[in-house]
């Protein structure tokens, strides 16, 4: 029996993540871990070149969710390293702290001056913990608003790379007004005088994603998801069993093609066959091209037109009948 394609993908991602972690550890600690790394690399190579049974067969929604959050999935940094030059990370919300899950600053997107905002999950265990797996506290959104102020001041288009399981659900986050920070960030984006292009590159987890998702254009990578709630939480509430997440993922219609059909996104950005992690350069090139094209189009609109277009875009979303 051949391995089902998605199991193979999951295995590959796991192996690649382990290789990566080991490499980072080796680099950071100066230890020689080649003995551990080499066999893993060989196995990755073998799986990758093995005849993949129907690698481009349609995936279930749940399989896509797993792909979107797999440890080997490229993070915002992987893309910006390839697409952005002269990036200056600006830290802190000038009030409480610097959030490591949502970072940003000015840079050039394939040559175009922009203000970059991105959710960063981290690339190894240590940095994932430091970045809270991409879950921001309120100061993350407050930093984003501060950078949007700068974008308006300097006429820099805003580019948002969305990749978060959701805003962080913690005691301190609530004390400092997590809901308020998200609501205000949404409002700040509605009021932007510059173009805003948002791209979901992994997980688009609810309000924590929307807080930097109110763009003139909203794009999504082929294997990313965007939903009002994670499949696990949805299953825990509606099925009273988080193990029903695969069913919830189907019901939530949270994949890129679903969102395109619902009019939530303008465009699905293609990924290399099997997922963005299999050919990072190609994935980055497609993301760079799509975001750049929308930036160029929006560059032709003036302040009023940009605000009006963004407002009309979101005002029109919803499904209802009228008697």
């Amino acid at each position: 029996m051949t391995t089902p394609p998605t199991d193979l993908k999951a295995t590959l991602l796991k192996l690649e993540a382990r290789v990566h972690d080991l490499e980072v550890t080796a680099r950071e600690t100066g230890q020689n871990l080649d003995a551990a790394i080499h066999p893993l690399r060989a196995e990755v190579e073998r799986l990758r070149t093995a005849p993949v049974p129907a690698a481009n067969a349609p995936m279930t929604r749940w399989e896509r969710v797993q792909l979107a959050r797999a440890p080997g999935r490229p993070t915002a940094h992987d893309y910006t390293e390839r697409l952005v030059t002269d990036f200056t990370e600006l830290h802190g919300d000038r009030n409480f702290a610097d959030d490591h899950a949502l970072i940003g600053g000015p840079g050039r997107w394939q040559g175009r001056p922009v203000m970059l905002l991105m959710q960063q999950k981290g690339r190894d265990t240590k940095s994932r913990v430091r970045r809270r797996f991409g879950m921001s506290n309120p100061e993350g959104y407050r930093k984003a608003m501060r950078l949007m102020d700068l974008a308006d001041k300097f006429g820099l288009p805003v580019v948002c790379l969305i990749d978060t399981p959701g805003a962080y659900p913690g005691i301190e986050a609530e004390e400092r007004g997590q809901a308020w920070a998200i609501a205000e960030s949404i409002q700040r984006m509605v009021r932007l005088r510059v173009p805003a292009v948002c791209a979901v590159i992994g997980e688009g987890g609810s309000g924590g994603a929307l807080a930097i998702g109110v763009g003139n254009r909203v794009l999504i990578q082929e294997n990313a998801w965007y939903s009002v709630i994670s499949p696990e939480s949805c299953a825990a509430i509606l099925w009273r069993d988080s193990a029903q997440a695969p069913k919830a993922a189907e019901a939530l219609k949270l994949t890129a093609p679903d969102l395109l059909e619902l009019g939530i996104v303008e465009e699905v950005i293609p990924e290399p066959v099997g997922g963005a992690h299999l050919d990072l350069d190609a994935a980055a090139a497609a993301l760079g091209e799509a975001v750049g094209r929308h930036l160029d189009e929006l560059g032709k609109l003036n302040e009023q037109e940009l605000k009006a277009q963004r407002a009309a875009r979101f005002r029109a979303l919803g499904a209802f009948t009228e008697s």
């Binding site: 949270l254 619902l262 939530i264 979303l317």
Partner: peptide
């Protein structure tokens, strides 16, 4: 209503 509900926050 999944993502459509989410979008009501912006709307």
């Amino acid at each position: 209503e999944s993502a459509l509900s989410l979008m009501q926050m912006a709307k």
